[in-house]
Design a protein around this nucleic acid. Structure first.
Lengths: 110, 110
DNA sequence: CGAATACTGAGCCACGCGGCTAAGTATTGG
DNA sequence: CCAATACTTAGCCGCGTGGCTCAGTATTCG
């Protein structure tokens, strides 16, 4: 949970770019090579590769090279980090709602 | 839904910073003034104010000035954008899973 | 073997982000 | 009215991000 939040930044930063979200979406449909992925984005291969590395460093995708082709696939579990953050956030404000309700109950005793 | 995805970037970028996520968390407990919020972060007020503006521009918080104090509060609904994105992503890969299952079914007819 | 393919690495560059200080404005308390 | 308070604006600055080109490496195909 500690190293976890330490890397929360990496995940959100990785998601804060339309190209990288595009890659994630595409990989949701199945694995693809760097070249095939890059072909669907308006930039050069070296530029695109940086995005792949960013996603990989954030743990959102895994890549492996076979011959001269590097294949990328989604690491679905990693997105749970975002889910967890949202859940935690909701927990915080639901606690507040509970406190407010108790307050109202105390002020208007039955 | 169009202007929606146009601003997806703003939301993810806003969340890609620990200070701003900290503000969101704090505001989950209830509204607070800019000064009170800033006091809990290791930076100057002008620097902090930029984060507030970023969150406001992303629609994640609302602010209003009363007298010389600006009060901030969370706009919970806005976080649904993230939820929606996650849901859409899951839809994509569940479709793929379905396709794979159909494929297996066709290859191994009952 | 030689050419084509698919990355990969190095290095450059413009821009924007996130910090700062200093000075300005609007309210409020005494 | 004056001083303190609470922002707000303006402007500077260093660094990282995201794009590019160009050259290099490793595979594969004919």
């Amino acid at each position: 949970m500690a190293q976890y939040s330490a890397r929360l930044d990496d995940v959100f930063i990785a998601l804060a770019d339309p190209t990288r979200r595009g890659v994630i979406r595409r990989l949701g449909e199945g694995p693809a090579s760097v070249g095939d992925l890059a072909a669907t984005f308006p930039m050069t291969l070296p530029s695109f590769l940086k995005h792949v590395r960013t996603l990989e460093a954030a743990g959102l995708i895994r890549t492996a090279k076979a011959g001269r082709v590097r294949t990328c696939e989604l690491n679905r579990e990693r997105l749970a980090v975002v889910d967890d953050w949202l859940a935690e956030q909701r927990r915080v404000w639901e606690e507040r709602t509970d406190r407010l309700e108790r307050l109202v109950t105390e002020e208007n005793p039955p």
